[in-house]
Design a protein around this nucleic acid. Structure first.
Length: 493
RNA sequence: CGAGAUAUAGCGCAGUUGGUAGCGCGCCACGUUCGGGACGUGGAGGCCGGGCGUUCGAGUCGCCCUAUCUCGACCA
């Protein structure tokens, strides 16, 4: 269980409950095979679904198409791009057999030793190898380019240490893989996708992110450049929320993907890949949650509005139902995701707590008092405040409130980040400040040696060289050598 | 895989110097309630992670497994 998430909430029982609502760890067997996996419960999955749907729309709006490639990748596919393989070889799950049989000793089943595969299959840790093997057959001419594919899939990485949501053995993600005729076009694509990610993070997840480029040592295995969006969690640790890679011609060369260009000359295609995962759900939880549970931004909340009737008997409930039905219809007609919870097996107080736990941004309450006065109570999750308004004004109030909550959650996270971002001049100051968490902006001499030294001494890594960072030159805080601008350091997940 | 910790009811936890298990929440029934997780009464639910040992007797002591959590190495 991710304590970091735990630490954000102090009401232990409450925490267990809301957390449990989203996800449970797989405890299916006393075996490490399911260790670090998770079972996502319906409510948790519906959040992922919102993420998926929104991103998918954004991908399609920029000309991308979805495809699906196999889960199993023949081992031989991995012997092509050596840097890439080195990056993943240590964490691959391998299928070696295709059959079970009853244990001759009579207890349970065993793997049939006679059913060994001639060539082992690797459960994809990422799909570059199989996709590029396929692209080779799809590409002959510049007319076949660009290929702009995305895949929604699960991947498996046998991590030494897992962390729920942030680093599970199996996770869901989206991986885009594109092929282009020119370097410029591929580079443009890499940055376009990075922009989509930051747009999504900030405007849908209400999560402020830093855009930048990774240093060589933090780069994706096989990439020329890795760009990323970095977010800051409430506990002061950084989280890489998405990456977009410019792969150059590395994969094209490894998989021999050539095409005939306009000039009639053969050339290798230029590639990109980009992805975000269920880790985003972890980011969402850790960035916004409070002691009462989740705080979901309206743009991603499975339910944006929940309506709770308060009544003493069936007759009253019937009256409230009748009163609310047109409102529910109208809210839905204007595209607002509404849940009307008039279930009779739960008390109003219980419902209030429950939907706060689930992070529903706006709650409407209607009881006898409101019926009499023709009013309705409106509560907002982010501030935990409520007001009573005229029933006739409920539509407009809800609409503005949803916008306001979205804005407010983002602003809160932005203010928090600002309060946790420090400009650092000396290494002593750095060592001291890093203990409190946050983003530290400091000068670095650009060498991997210094980067490693800092990591070893402080556990801080360079999260990125930010696009809009301080570009004034200075001196490395460790070595005193020249630096062309400040980079962002933090301890991270 | 190294270091530390934990494993008792669905969840969170007690359990004294060894004597065959409790509490809170949740669950079920009935009644009163219903505008912030209602209350009362009654009830269901446990191979005390697994194995071996010490003992007349083990949740408790010893050893060995296994799983989980925290911190490292690895990583989205």
């Amino acid at each position: 269980m991710a304590t970091e998430i735990k630490e954000l909430t102090s009401k232990k029982e409450n925490y267990a409950k809301w957390y449990n609502d989203l996800v449970i760890k797989a405890e299916l067997a006393e075996n490490s095979a399911v260790r670090g996996c998770m079972v996502i419960k319906p409510y948790g999955y519906s959040i992922w679904e919102r993420i998926q749907r929104q991103l998918d729309d954004m991908f399609k709006a920029t000309g991308h198409e979805n495809a699906y490639f196999p889960l199993f990748i023949p081992k031989s596919f991995f012997s092509r791009e050596s840097e890439h393989v080195e990056g993943f070889a240590k964490e691959c799950a391998v299928v070696t057999h295709y059959r079970l049989k009853n244990d001759p000793s009579g207890k349970g089943v065993i793997v049939d030793p006679d059913a060994a595969l001639e060539e082992e299959l690797i459960v994809r840790p990422t799909s570059e190898t199989i996709i590029w093997s396929t692209y080779k057959n799809w590409i002959q001419s510049y007319r076949d380019l660009p290929i702009l594919c995305n895949q929604w899939a699960n991947v498996v990485r046998w991590e030494m240490r897992t962390r729920l949501f942030l680093r599970t053995a199996e996770f869901l993600w989206q991986e885009g893989h594109t092929a282009h005729a020119t370097r410029e076009e591929a580079e443009e694509e890499t940055l376009r996708m990075l922009d989509i990610y930051s747009d999504f993070a900030e405007n849908y997840m209400a999560l402020p992110v830093l855009k930048g480029v990774k240093t060589a040592s933090e780069r994706f295995a096989g990439a020329i450049d890795t760009y990323c969006i970095e977010a800051l969690m409430q506990d002061g640790k950084a989280l890489q929320a998405g990456t977009s890679h410019f792969l150059g011609q590395n994969f094209a060369k490894a998989f021999d993907v050539q095409f005939l260009n306009k000039e009639g000359k053969r050339d290798y295609v230029w590639a990109t890949s980009w992805g975000v995962s269920t880790r985003l759900m972890g980011a969402l939880i850790m960035a916004h949650s409070d002691d009462n549970g989740l705080v979901l931004p309206p743009n991603l909340a499975p339910y944006q509005v929940v309506i709770v009737p308060v009544y003493k008997n069936d007759e009253q409930l019937a009256q409230i139902n009748a009163k609310l039905q047109p409102l529910i219809d109208e809210l839905r007609a204007s595209g607002i995701r509404v849940k009307y919870d008039n279930s009779q097996n739960k008390k109003p107080g219980w419902k209030f707590a429950e939907y706060e736990l689930k992070g529903v941004p706006v709650r409407l309450t209607m009881g006898a008092r409101d019926m009499e006065n023709n009013t309705i109570e409106i509560a907002r999750r982010d501030m935990l405040t409520k007001q009573t308004v005229d029933f006739d004004r409920v539509m407009t109030t809800v609409k503005t409130l949803l916008v306001d909550v979205q804005k407010n959650i983002f602003q809160k996270a932005l203010d928090f980040r600002a309060s946790q971002t420090f400009t650092i001049e000396t290494y002593d100051e750095f060592k001291h400040k890093i203990e409190e968490g946050g983003f530290l902006l400091a000068h670095w001499d650009g060498t991997a040696e210094t980067e490693t030294l800092i990591k070893e001494e402080t556990k801080a890594t360079i999260r990125c060289i930010p696009f809009d960072g301080d570009k004034t030159s200075g001196r490395c805080m460790v070595t005193g050598k020249p630096s062309v601008g400040r980079v962002v350091f933090a301890r991270s997940y």
